[in-house]
Amino acid sequence: MEYRRREVLGASAAGIAAAVGGCLGDSGDDGEGSIAGEELAMATTTSTEATGLLDELNAAFRERFSTRVAANADGTGAAIRSARDGNADVILVHARSQEDEFMRDGYGVNRRDLMFNDFVVVGPSDDPAGVGDTEQATAAFEAIADAEATFVSRGDESGTHTKELAIWSETGLEPGGEWYQQLGQGMGETLTNANESGAYTLSDRGTYLSRDDLDLEILLQGPIEGGPELLANPYGIMAVNPEIHDDVNYQLAMAYIGFVTSPEGQAVIEDFTANGEQLFFPEALSEDPDFQQYVPEGWQPNGSEE
């Protein structure tokens, strides 16, 4: 489907304006007054909720704008589907390929890079597959497949599942058999299952660190701790296009995006810790305009794609 340049640029400009508005937060702005008391419908991924970051962000947003956020935390796939149906005003997700498709189809506007952390391969401490000796995500997955060690997969089209499938696809292996188990549940349940079953899994670092009841160990680090770039986990946020769903609360969505990408919102992310560790790293503030965050990856201003 053709990506409509003019509308996107127009919407991006509006988004930037709203974001700037959110940053400056001048109280004389009537936009701020009119959203007070309304409720923002957000669709997001399990990691933001399970870590507790979402509560912090939403509490800060509420304090600032007197606006509540009703967040529905499922996998990225579910969040995007919910937004396609017009059941969300804003989505905060972490699977760029799915986000890009969402934008190309015209549903998402004003995407912003919000923050990042990384994925880690976790497993039992005795590490029967020898994942601890690998340095690449593909090598780790190959070791697990070779040993036919139990691997629990989210299996739910979430951002983490999307990443896991991308890694399998890089290895050229098609995981199957009794050792490869698809749960169809959130990250928290999946970690619990891996912990109980002595299995390996791919987890976002945040959800893993927010748990203190696990015997699982990180066997392959992500890029934050010097691991492979393939395990990077960037989060994006975008508004649902009011041109397609005219009942979405676009103004409120943009106020939220403006807030969380402002220095104030980014500080909430920076300061958020669990068990003494920082879980997410702010990415919205940079000196460069970083045009690519607003559009599908590889999209060119002349309307074509690379």
Binding site: G155, L183, G184, N193
Partner: peptide
């Protein structure tokens, strides 16, 4: 139960 299904 854990809602487990195998890839096949």
């Amino acid at each position: 139960g854990g809602n487990i299904a195998y890839a096949d």
